[in-house]
């Protein structure tokens, strides 16, 4: 159990604590990950609680919506300001009791491979406002996923999508309460019978949620090919690991099926 519980009231103070304490300290947001007795963070000596930084709330901004990092997933699910696909993704996350506590900032910081809400943020081209000791910066979510995770997420900025953007999500869980085994999120526009501005994201197939750039490039500007063709294209581009939750082959099969279903759902919308 941590012996030091820091409660900074300014962002800079929180960043300084982390800089000084390094790996002995973890940031604490809602606590569904860090307070879990089975998590590594539960053994940390120092915890830096972010609950006093005023980072909650969902606000309308020019050209989009801003989701404060301490906003809970249940607040996102109930917010009329957010895209319905974000509601769907938030609903997939565990259950109401967990969503009442889990924050979007913590969801991004934990960055689980099978994170439920990250694929839809990629599909909607959201980006992050991140505070670092050298100042505030805008960070592409994909770069965040790839490891550029220095600093504290201040907010997730979701731009208003074009009116003809079609978004679709799929996921597979063992039970409704369980974390997803595989998640898929896609967005596209149908321009004269061809797919444009395609984004294909998948969770549970790599260390974090990933965009499948090769799949996007192969399909961009074309009508949606047959189910078999899409599934074999996706299966060739994902390399999930085998673990207690499923074999690599099973996960690859699932990823191909779910990405194809999401693409077809978006295409037929």
């Amino acid at each position: 159990m941590a012996s030091h519980f820091h409660q900074p009231e300014r962002i800079e103070e929180a960043l300084r604590f982390k800089q000084e304490l390094g790996e002995a300290a973890y940031f604490l947001a809602g606590g569904t990950e860090v307070n879990n007795s089975k998590s590594k963070a539960a053994q940390a000596e120092h915890l830096i609680w972010l609950g006093k930084l005023g980072l909650g709330g969902i606000k309308r901004r020019e050209g989009g919506v801003s989701i404060g990092a301490m906003t809970t997933l249940q607040e996102m699910l109930e917010s009329e300001l957010l895209h319905p696909a974000i509601h769907q993704a938030a609903r997939n996350h565990a259950n109401r009791n967990i969503r009442n506590v889990a924050t979007i900032g913590g969801h991004l910081a934990t960055c689980r491979s099978c994170a439920d809400v990250i694929p839809v943020l990629l599909a909607l081209r959201a980006w992050l406002r991140v505070a670092t000791l050298s100042g505030e910066l805008e960070r592409d979510i994909e770069r965040w996923l790839l490891g550029e995770r220095d600093g504290i997420v201040l907010s997730v900025e979701v731009p208003d999508p074009p009116a003809d953007l079609r978004v679709a999500l799929e996921c597979h869980t063992r039970t409704a309460n369980d974390v997803s085994l595989i998640t898929a999120g896609v967005s596209l526009r149908n321009e004269q019978g061809c797919m444009r501005d395609l984004i294909v994201a998948a969770g549970g197939v790599a260390a974090s949620v990933v965009r499948l750039h090769e799949v996007e490039a192969a399909l961009e500007g074309k009508p949606l090919p047959s189910r078999e063709e899409v599934e074999s294209l996706v299966a060739g581009q994902v390399n999930p690991i085998a673990d207690i939750r499923g074999s690599a082959d099973f996960k690859r099969h699932l990823a191909a099926t779910l990405v194809e279903r999401a693409l077809r759902k978006a295409w037929n919308r």
């Binding site: 519980f5 879990n36 007795s37 915890l47 009791n97 506590v101």
Partner: peptide, 27 residues
Amino acid sequence: CGEGECGACLVLVNGQAVNSCLVATGQ
């Protein structure tokens, strides 16, 4: 369960239903 799955420890914090096994008292 002690890890937020079962809800046996559920209490209300500021009106919200939360698993008290996942909340630090300092929070």
